[in-house]
Design a protein around this nucleic acid. Structure first.
Lengths: 139, 139
DNA sequence: TCATGATATTATAATAATTATTAATTAGTA
DNA sequence: TACTAATTAATAATTATTATAATATCATGA
């Protein structure tokens, strides 16, 4: 059974605050892999007193709780994703949008790495770069 | 036949300077995937007048020439690698060192992505995270 | 070989993302 | 409802990276 943020925060001894809920929900409700600043701007109308530092701190907390993942696709800032199901990411080199790649199986690949290293593997991150259909047309 | 940096720079209309050669060689001669600052510090004794901005600019130039690749492993700064052969990277979550993963075939995985997206794929980057043998012992 | 001009480097300032600090606020418990 | 520790907000500080402008240097052709 899946626990919600509220329960998870509380179970770990973290306080449940409107800011935390709002930031997590903002991430849950988008597929855009926003940056901290983007989340901040999106929430600002509803939470006019919220500080950007709170966004950063909350994102760190949520990441530590494995509720969200942090992405770095070679940009100047990090992106965040509340989708914790197994999936990978692709960034368009023209418009810089980041999309999910679902339903692609990397298990064989991962197993090969597990077999060939003496590391205890904890996680992995696969990034693809190319030009999206939209940008292909618009050239 | 493989061209060296000097020829490649000259062919593309870039000037061949001691700084560029030094930075490229520094990268060629290490497996440590250093950051810009690390390269700078390493070269400082031999090139005392060199500026950190030159390191950054040179790394950008070399990257544009496809002579080096830029890595982002979720850290606060980028790492650089002059090994352009097909390989992947693994970072130890304890000591933060980054090692190469050679001889692991991702082609099937990549083909799957090519088939399932409408992107024109240009490149990809696979990062693994775990604990290295050394850090496992030392716990 | 040397002068020329374009490019590169240096030094420094500027920018931008992120983190640290601290006082005020608030969630959760007694 | 009152208390206390955790959290937030406001702001300053830090750090990686980029931009600017003056000087220096590479590479071409006379």
């Amino acid at each position: 059974m899946k626990k919600n943020v509220t329960t998870l925060l509380r179970d770990k001894g973290f306080k449940v605050t409107p800011q935390r809920i709002a930031i997590y929900n903002a991430l849950l409700s988008t597929k855009e892999h926003p940056k901290a600043e983007t989340i901040y701007n999106k929430l600002l109308p509803l939470y006019p007193t919220m500080s950007l530092a709170t966004v950063y701190k909350t994102l760190e907390t949520l990441s530590n709780l494995n509720l969200i993942q942090v992405l770095n696709l070679g940009e100047d800032s990090f992106r965040y994703d509340a989708d914790m199901s197994t999936h990978h990411h692709i960034r368009c080199l023209k418009c810089d949008k980041v999309e999910d790649l679902h339903g692609i199986d990397a298990q064989t690949f991962i197993n090969e790495v597990t077999d060939k290293t003496n590391y205890t593997l904890q996680r992995q991150q696969f990034y693809f770069f190319g030009v999206c259909p939209n940008c292909q047309k618009s050239h």
